[in-house]
């Protein structure tokens, strides 16, 4: 018999704060795993890109024919497709991140028992969490690039600020993934995932994705303004239409706070999530 060939990982110093054995500095291997798995189911991977594109084609042209133009973020009128496209970009960032951090994580955890297999290796719970969130970002980032190219093709991007929509989409996805992961740690069965649908679908429909805030009565406007997707939509709309103001930093701050809070809860619950 030869000696063991597995190498002992040396976690970076900062992670010493976490429960020991939680981080082996190998989160990138989960990306490798997800990329390999995606290559085997490339059609499903590709389909994620088309969902917002179908919405843009149908709603932009179809509903647009009923609406004409709408006031943009700075009051200047813009076409309906230009109005909803950034909303769809934001919603797609949310939906992808939430799906990956809730349904996907729960399935791999409870049914595929994938994390049990990983945690029997030198990998720790933090590697798993970072790897899964990282993959959600890689995938979301690719979809966002694709969607921005489609927007450019339709002439819906007329400003260099639109380049910032990509990092903005990543930030939005990160915040939703962190909160989603934290929420998943409290899930007990599939029935609980109805709550996820119950949160994401209304947000998708009502966060000024399809029409401006002014449609709502005053009290409802305040409620909508609290929703995270509203801030994502406004952020994207400001960047893709070039109506950039300091207010956009407020939206960015919203997601930074959300990512930190979600991440803190997820980190604290990670042991409960992955180790029994």
């Amino acid at each position: 018999m030869t000696g063991p060939v597995g190498t002992v990982p040396h976690p970076p110093r900062a992670w010493r704060l976490l429960p020991s054995g939680g981080y082996a500095g190998r989160a990138h291997l989960l990306l490798e795993r997800s990329a390999t798995a995606s290559r085997r189911s490339w059609l499903v991977f590709l389909s994620g890109f088309f969902e917002p594109v179908f919405y843009l084609l149908a709603m932009g042209q179809g509903l647009g024919s009923l609406v004409g133009e709408l006031p943009g973020p700075d009051g200047a009128p813009i076409g309906y497709a230009a109005f909803i496209a950034p909303g769809l970009l934001a919603a797609s960032a949310m939906n992808g991140a939430v799906f990956d951090s809730t349904f996907n994580v729960f399935f791999k955890l409870k049914y595929a028992k994938l994390y049990d297999a990983m945690l029997a290796t030198p990998l720790g719970a933090v590697d798993v969490a970072l790897g899964e969130i990282g993959w959600a970002l890689v995938r979301g980032g690719l979809y966002a690039v694709g969607f921005l190219l489609v927007m450019a093709g339709f002439g819906l991007l007329g400003t260099p600020w639109a380049l910032l929509a990509l990092p903005a989409a990543l930030l939005v996805a990160l915040a939703f993934a962190a909160v989603g992961m934290a929420a998943t740690s409290f899930m007990r069965s599939w029935q609980d995932f109805d709550l996820v649908t119950l949160v994401t679908v209304p947000m998708f429909l009502f966060s000024t994705t399809f029409y401006p805030l002014s449609v709502y009565p005053g009290w409802l406007q305040v409620v909508v303004e609290c929703l995270p997707l509203y801030h994502a939509v406004e952020l994207m709309r400001g960047l893709t239409t070039g109506a950039v103001s300091l207010a956009l930093l407020g939206h960015v701050a919203y997601f930074l706070v959300m990512a930190v809070l979600g991440g803190a809860v997820a980190a604290r619950r990670l042991e409960a999530l992955l180790l029994r």
Binding site: G6, V8, P9, G21, A37, S41, A112, K113, A120, L123
Partner: peptide, 23 residues
């Protein structure tokens, strides 16, 4: 204290197969 170091030198066969069905 040394979980990862130990796990790098052992092999585990769990009660239920947890192979990666996507691979």
């Amino acid at each position: 204290r040394d979980g990862p170091a130990i796990r790098s030198r052992i092999g585990v066969v769990p009660q239920l197969d947890n192979l990666d069905l996507e691979l």
